[in-house]
Amino acid sequence: MVQHFQWKPLFKQANLPGWRISFYFKGTHYDGIYHKNGQVEWGTAIPPGDEEEHLLSQIHELMLFHVYE
């Protein structure tokens, strides 16, 4: 489960797409850039391949709720 999810626009101009995200998942801190097409560029840590798809699904749901309401 994703915990302490945070997001903010990449640019001061909020109309431009792209958001910096950070969160904890299974005790590991992850960060990255969420693009408008749903793609994530991972930062310092990359989730294991078997969990990445499930994690991306959760992130997409959170972004839909917070950004695209």
Results as ranks from 00 to 15, higher is better:
residue 1 M to S: 15
residue 1 M to Q: 13
residue 2 V to Q: 12
residue 3 Q to M: 15
residue 3 Q to D: 15
residue 4 H to E: 15
residue 5 F to Q: 10
residue 6 Q to T: 11
residue 7 W to P: 05
residue 8 K to Y: 03
residue 8 K to Q: 15
residue 9 P to Q: 03
residue 9 P to R: 09
residue 9 P to S: 13
residue 10 L to P: 01
residue 10 L to G: 06
residue 10 L to T: 05
residue 10 L to D: 02
residue 11 F to Q: 08
residue 11 F to I: 00
residue 12 K to G: 12
residue 12 K to I: 10
residue 13 Q to N: 15
residue 16 L to G: 04
residue 16 L to D: 01
residue 17 P to N: 14
residue 19 W to P: 05
residue 20 R to M: 02
residue 20 R to G: 02
residue 20 R to P: 01
residue 21 I to Y: 00
residue 21 I to E: 03
residue 22 S to E: 12
residue 23 F to R: 04
residue 23 F to L: 08
residue 24 Y to C: 05
residue 24 Y to S: 09
residue 25 F to T: 00
residue 25 F to Q: 05
residue 25 F to P: 01
residue 26 K to M: 13
residue 29 H to S: 12
residue 31 D to N: 15
residue 31 D to V: 00
residue 33 I to P: 02
residue 33 I to C: 07
residue 35 H to F: 06
residue 35 H to W: 10
residue 36 K to Q: 06
residue 36 K to S: 10
residue 36 K to Y: 03
residue 36 K to H: 06
residue 37 N to E: 00
residue 37 N to S: 08
residue 37 N to D: 13
residue 37 N to R: 08
residue 37 N to L: 04
residue 40 V to L: 00
residue 40 V to I: 13
residue 41 E to T: 04
residue 42 W to D: 02
residue 42 W to P: 06
residue 43 G to D: 04
residue 44 T to N: 09
residue 44 T to W: 03
residue 45 A to L: 08
residue 45 A to V: 11
residue 45 A to Q: 12
residue 46 I to G: 03
residue 47 P to C: 07
residue 47 P to G: 01
residue 48 P to T: 09
residue 48 P to E: 12
residue 48 P to C: 05
residue 48 P to M: 07
residue 49 G to F: 06
residue 50 D to S: 04
residue 50 D to F: 07
residue 51 E to P: 04
residue 52 E to D: 05
residue 53 E to P: 00
residue 54 H to N: 07
residue 54 H to Y: 10
residue 54 H to A: 12
residue 55 L to D: 07
residue 55 L to I: 05
residue 56 L to F: 04
residue 56 L to H: 03
residue 56 L to C: 04
residue 56 L to T: 01
residue 56 L to E: 08
residue 57 S to V: 02
residue 57 S to K: 14
residue 57 S to D: 13
residue 58 Q to T: 04
residue 58 Q to Y: 08
residue 62 L to Y: 10
residue 62 L to R: 11
residue 63 M to S: 08
residue 63 M to G: 04
residue 64 L to S: 10
residue 64 L to E: 15
residue 64 L to V: 10
residue 64 L to Q: 15
residue 64 L to W: 10
residue 66 H to C: 04
residue 67 V to W: 03
residue 67 V to G: 05
residue 68 Y to N: 13
residue 69 E to S: 14
residue 69 E to L: 12
residue 69 E to M: 08
residue 69 E to C: 09
